[in-house]
Nucleic acid binder design. Sequence first.
DNA 1: TTGAAAGCGCTAACAT
DNA 2: ATGTTAGCGCTTTCAA
Lengths: 352, 352
Amino acid sequence: MKKKAGVTLVDVAKLAGVSVMTASRALSGEGYSSEETKAKVQAAAKQLGYIPNALARMMKGAKTNVIGVVVNDLSSSVVNCFVTALSEEVRKVDMDLFIYNSLGDMGGGKGKRLSQMLHGLWDGLVYVLPRMTDDYLETLEKSTSPIVMINYFRHETSLPVVGGDNVNGARDAVSYLLELGHRRIAFVRGSAYTGQSDLRERGYAAALAEAGIALDPELICEGNFQEQMAMEGTRKLLALADPPTAIFAASDAMALGCFNAIREKGLRIPQDISVIGFDDIPAAAMAQPPLTTLRHPFEAMAQAAVQELMRRIKGEPGRRHRIEFPSELVMRESTGPAPAAMPAKRSRARQV
Amino acid sequence: MKKKAGVTLVDVAKLAGVSVMTASRALSGEGYSSEETKAKVQAAAKQLGYIPNALARMMKGAKTNVIGVVVNDLSSSVVNCFVTALSEEVRKVDMDLFIYNSLGDMGGGKGKRLSQMLHGLWDGLVYVLPRMTDDYLETLEKSTSPIVMINYFRHETSLPVVGGDNVNGARDAVSYLLELGHRRIAFVRGSAYTGQSDLRERGYAAALAEAGIALDPELICEGNFQEQMAMEGTRKLLALADPPTAIFAASDAMALGCFNAIREKGLRIPQDISVIGFDDIPAAAMAQPPLTTLRHPFEAMAQAAVQELMRRIKGEPGRRHRIEFPSELVMRESTGPAPAAMPAKRSRARQV
DNA sequence: TTGAAAGCGCTAACAT
DNA sequence: ATGTTAGCGCTTTCAA
């Protein structure tokens, strides 16, 4: 296989009886060319089944008109929501979008390959909920390609970050539960990679502090943003001597895991126990009962990310280093008033 | 911006005091080069922060080592399962994988752009559950690039197709319900794009025919593979004078939609009504009750697709034109014996 | 309006 | 073990 089977512009030009350059112009519409030659060239192109080689075109102009999105875990609903929103935004600015699934491997192992792909193929990159080593982040910061991150709070970084307001979102969630009369409110953590879980926990602690309720370490349970682990954690929570009357899960997926553990025990949501999530993934609205949660403005965030990226691609200065979007409390049916407390429990709850 | 900011191999070679070619060899490890120069060049590359331009490299060898996956709807769980499985398979053969989300637009509108991207960037393409116009399919068939499709049955095609055995899977599903004593079995259709829904419906019809039960058009309801529409359809099904005792949904997502409508009516699954899905997406196992369904062997199918694609990329003849994988019945808790029939209904059911 | 030449960054093939 | 030449397919000069 010496030659790539494809038809090249040279072939088209030859058939049309013009120079390569003329053919190029006729097909791209850039520069001048008579209607006549244009028609002739287009006919030739069609006849030969000519398809321009994207690579070669990209090599010249520094622009590829492609934006890359890097994710670690495509099966995450949140990631999915962002990717879908980004796809639509990118289309609006007339670029193409390719998604690269690093399968959780960013910086370790073969991560090197990714950072190589990084170059030349894209005009810019969006990292969605990235999960990267510190080394990798450093490499990225040094890179000259335009980069924007979505929801990365693990470290301070010089890269632009578009994110939700996790602290205030979480505070709102917990305040809402407090208003409903809950006092024993559990928190299910997510994994630490993006730093979001920590912020949400901070909001949780802040709301409790404002209400004068001491933090009970028993009520904080480990999680990884996924259903399974939240289910296991909730089982333990429910087995506590003084179990919570409400659970704030750091993600909707985990909130749905809580649902399962709660039902398993024969308890009702929200009569016996309230559950509130974070993110507002599609499954939240479809759950039984529909899940109360905090909504990320996915579309707005995607738009901001793309705009910021385009600005950098065009060489304009970035507008802001960090863009935060407030999360909106979506009240559905998984939250309700705290159940009337039993005397024994009441006394224990008060002791704090 | 005349020059791309990036450091090129020329810069590295200059700094290291060697020729470009030597630098190339030292970095790639191909061909001979002394340890000394290798070290020198690598140091220079590191110092300058050199990143090879993927594009330029691709232009030479006809191979890009990239496989593209084209999907219409990334938010579909089934698509997601395939993409994830493909990502892993592709990694095993040491290629990279990029995902292109056509957002439902394949052949119409800007579809042209996609088919252009097709060229040069990829060594091969996998279309997952494609949703394309006939024109587009024809273009693809004429294309010289290696292409494999997953679960496309809409038309006969010369392209290799890796697919599940929809007819027999559906037949198994319905046979199972029949064994459980169900006689009024509804079917919720999916959208027609890939042709899978039709095949599943055929299996449904076949199983009923084998059991000597006539098809009741009232029991067949429209759907689009998604939760919402199945929910609406199920409401109508349940409002029927002689409602079904079991529902076979053409996808898990729809089966979960059925769940909602059933619960809404205060009915229990599976005591009052059984539900069976198709695909075995992750949410199926986590549902309440866990959903009985037909499992696609995602991993095996992804592997077959990648292997077939690699064979074509390497210029070897494709092994098979069409590779089918049987679906496996996964019995969970959403199916149970048919409820004892009421006299009135019994008689109607018998009339067929 | 068209054409010729140059070169993007890299590597295969052939020298040295 | 290293350097030189040439060329991938296209577009950006510049000249006609």
